[in-house]
C-alpha cells in the first residue's frame, strides 16, 4: 500500500472536501428545520396515523440508500412528479447537480434529527409549557422560549449525527447526483474513485480526514447528551 500523503492543496482533495462541507451543512440545516417541526407535531398532538407517520419519518434510517435514491429519482428526476414540474416552471434541474446531492443527503440525515428531537421534546416537562401558557404566552412563544431551549442539547446532538451521516452519504447521492469530479463528487465518492483508480495516497488522506471528523462529532455528541440541570 502506498501511504504517501498527498498535497493538502491538491484540487483532488480540496474540491471534494469543500463540496462535502457545503452539501452536508445545507442538508443538516434542512433536516433540522423539517425534523424538529415533525418531531414537535408528533410529540404534542395525538391523531390517527401518528405511529404510521413516525415510521415514515424514520424509514430513511433503515432503508438501503439505493432504494432512497430510486425514490428520489421517481420524485425529483427529469421525468419525476416534482422534477418535471420544477424543470418546466422554473427551469430548475436537480439531477446531477450539487443541489440534488443536498436533497439526497437531507433525506438520509432527516431521521437522525427527527429521532433525537422527538426524544428530547418528549423529555420536556409539560408543566413548563403550561407555565408559559398561564403566563400569557402563545404557542410560538412556548416553543421558542421553553420547549426548544430545553430540548436544545438533544436536538443539537441529533444535528451533529445528521451532519456526520450527510457527510458520509454515498448510495443515494450517487444515484441522484452522480459522481462528477468538481461538481458532485463528495468525499465518500472521491474515496471510491481514488480506490478504483489505484490512487492509495489520496484514498488514505480522504479516509483519515473523514474518520477524524466523525470521531470528533461522536465525542462532542456524547458530551452534549450528559445531563445538565
Amino acid at each position: 500500500m502506498d501511504f504517501v500523503w498527498i498535497d493538502f492543496t491538491d484540487a483532488a482533495f480540496v474540491q471534494p472536501l469543500l463540496l462535502t462541507l457545503k452539501v452536508a451543512s445545507l442538508a443538516t440545516a434542512a433536516a433540522l428545520v423539517l425534523g424538529v417541526a415533525a418531531a414537535y407535531a408528533l410529540s404534542r398532538r395525538s391523531f390517527i396515523g401518528r405511529d404510521f407517520l413516525d415510521a415514515v419519518c424514520t424509514l430513511p434510517m433503515v432503508m438501503p440508500p439505493t432504494v432512497l435514491g430510486y425514490y428520489l429519482l421517481v420524485f425529483i428526476g427529469r421525468k419525476g412528479v416534482i422534477g418535471e414540474w420544477l424543470l418546466e416552471t422554473f427551469g430548475i434541474r436537480l439531477m446531477f447537480t450539487w443541489q440534488g446531492a443536498v436533497i439526497a443527503a437531507a433525506v438520509v440525515a432527516f431521521p437522525l434529527v427527527f429521532k433525537s428531537a422527538r426524544a428530547a421534546l418528549e423529555g420536556v416537562g409539560r408543566q413548563y409549557e403550561n407555565a408559559a401558557r398561564t403566563l400569557g404566552q402563545g404557542e410560538l412563544s412556548v416553543f421558542l422560549r421553553v420547549s426548544f431551549p430545553l430540548a436544545f442539547r438533544g436536538i443539537l446532538s441529533g444535528c451533529m449525527l445528521a451532519f456526520a451521516r450527510a457527510m458520509g452519504e454515498f448510495g443515494a447521492t450517487l444515484m441522484v447526483a452522480g459522481n462528477l469530479p468538481g461538481r458532485t463528487q463528495t468525499l465518500s465518492l472521491a474515496v471510491y474513485s481514488a480506490v478504483q483508480a489505484g490512487n492509495d495516497g489520496l484514498a488514505n488522506t480522504l479516509v483519515l480526514v473523514i474518520s477524524l471528523v466523525c470521531v470528533i462529532i461522536l465525542m462532542t455528541t456524547g458530551k452534549l447528551l450528559q445531563p445538565r440541570f
Binding site: 416537562g125 408543566q127 413548563y128 403550561n130 407555565a131 408559559a132 401558557r133 398561564t134 403566563l135 400569557g136 404566552q137 402563545g138 422560549r145 421553553v146 431551549p149 430545553l150 440541570f229
Partner: peptide, 27 residues
C-alpha cells in the same frame, strides 16, 4: 390559558431551569 389572566403555582413550581430567577419572574 394564555388569555385567562390567572396565575398558577405548580406543585413542583415548574421554574424554567434554563433561565435565571430574574428571567423567570420577567417571563
Amino acid at each position: 390559558a394564555r388569555q385567562r389572566r390567572v396565575g398558577y403555582l405548580f406543585q413542583d413550581y415548574a421554574l424554567f431551569p434554563h433561565l435565571t430567577v430574574e428571567q423567570n419572574i420577567g417571563f
